[in-house]
Design a protein around this nucleic acid. Structure first.
Lengths: 238, 238
DNA sequence: TGTACATCAGTGAACGCGCGTTCACTGATGTAC
DNA sequence: TGTACATCAGTGAACGCGCGTTCACTGATGTAC
């Protein structure tokens, strides 16, 4: 057997693992994460409950894996959108598409935290990867031709609307960010870019989470248009 | 007995009801809404489980009541902040204070929706009340002295940053809003104000929900400063 | 003021349920000689 | 190629738990005459 090749048993093993996860996602989509039941998954798969313990150490272990997969999936989606070269609007569209594809997956990452539960440690690494991609796109968006009339890297409307004279002077928060950039890792982004990346992140999650939670239903307007308008505000109309 | 006066029995009844709810909130704060248990509440209160059925029709009924109270509490907080006359920044501070005081209460309203559950009908009325207060403040913020150099009621950085010439022309979303303002009830706010109120709502929830869910912990910066910066962006630096 | 009755808060036992998890065991699939 | 052994997926029974909810009943508190 060649090195690195998987034995039939291992192949089968990972297939079953994948099937268990697939059913778990179905259950989460139907009843939320709190309604996830090992026995119900086993029943779905036509096997007995204890059989699942061959594949996962327990319920918590399975959920942890799902959380990890959700983070991974978002990080990959972000990376792909960034590489596609459609800039910040493209990244925003990708995020919304990812969220709408499976709202409960979104909520597993960004939704109500369960007071006791702690996300697995390696998710913080993936979270940093996500922020790094976002910083890449925000930095690149700065150097785009046609952006010369807005303050470079500035958050539109952050500080410079009232006294529009000194658009180049950083606001208080940017100064704070310059000294508290642990989350940015070793990314060389300047403070205004850091600040903008944070704004993109929080604002998009603002519209998205309210939309996904159904707070716009019955309000009358089209959620997509609100999202697009918010993205437009972030890119300064470009 | 004077008309409208409450009998001792009724008085006692509402006291116990209040105590049950108080324990329920404690439980939610500790274990989340999904961990709320009638029997555990009864135990906390030193009475047997079935006794609670004298006060609430069942678990769902109790949760519904809590959701209602949470909405009511936020609406009152908003109203008080608006009446205090500290404008949009004051309203934003009030929202953050309310959320931080009991994160799980915030999540009961704005957090991950339970796929099956539908909020009681009268909460939509309270939700509209909240939006009305927000619209009031946004409209008043428009007429404040010193706001003459920014486009009135405009969302800073929404549309007019790139081509700053025609700041008075409404963007596409504002036109859409002008025709889809069901959520605003009979509030006389102009489209730019509507648009700004939505931006305030979504952006504040963006920063807040991420902060409350713990997504800023370990990133290094101070969440409050990010929140303040976002508020500043919303008011155009005023 | 005293008696007869109605109201209603709270109890304890019980029901049925589904959950996560353990354990000893069977039987098929793979490996070593 | 054939035999002996090890690995390991999956089963069925069982444990203990806590849940929401029902039911018949007790005992205290209120009301009516």
């Amino acid at each position: 057997m060649a090195a690195g090749a998987v034995s039939p048993r291992e192949r089968y093993r990972s297939q079953v693992r994948a099937e268990i996860k697939a059913r778990a996602w179905e259950q989460i989509a139907t009843a939320g994460a709190s309604g996830l039941s090992l026995n119900a998954i086993a029943k779905d798969l036509g096997m007995s409950g204890p059989a699942l313990y061959r594949y996962f150490a327990g319920r918590d272990d399975l959920i942890t894996e799902l959380v990890r997969d959700a983070y991974r999936s978002l990080a990959d989606t972000f990376r792909a959108a960034a590489d596609a070269g459609s800039g910040l609007p493209g990244l925003a569209r990708a995020l919304r598409g990812w969220a709408l594809a499976d709202p409960q997956r979104y909520f597993l990452v960004y939704g109500t935290p369960v007071p006791g539960y702690r996300a697995p440690d390696d998710t913080t690494a993936i979270a940093q990867e996500i922020m790094a991609t976002l910083l890449d796109v925000c930095a690149a968006d700065d150097d785009v031709p046609g952006a010369d009339d807005a303050a470079e890297g500035d958050v539109p409307g952050a500080d410079d609307t009232a006294d529009a004279k000194d658009t180049a002077s950083p606001d208080a928060f940017e100064t704070h960010l310059a000294e508290h950039r642990r989350w940015a890792g070793d990314h060389p982004a300047a403070p205004p870019v850091l600040r903008r990346a944070l704004a993109v992140w929080t604002r998009l999650h603002g519209v998205l989470s309210l939309e996904l939670a159904g707070h716009f239903t019955g309000m009358g307007f089209d959620p997509e248009l609100l999202f697009d308008a918010e993205v437009k505000g972030l890119t300064g109309g470009r």
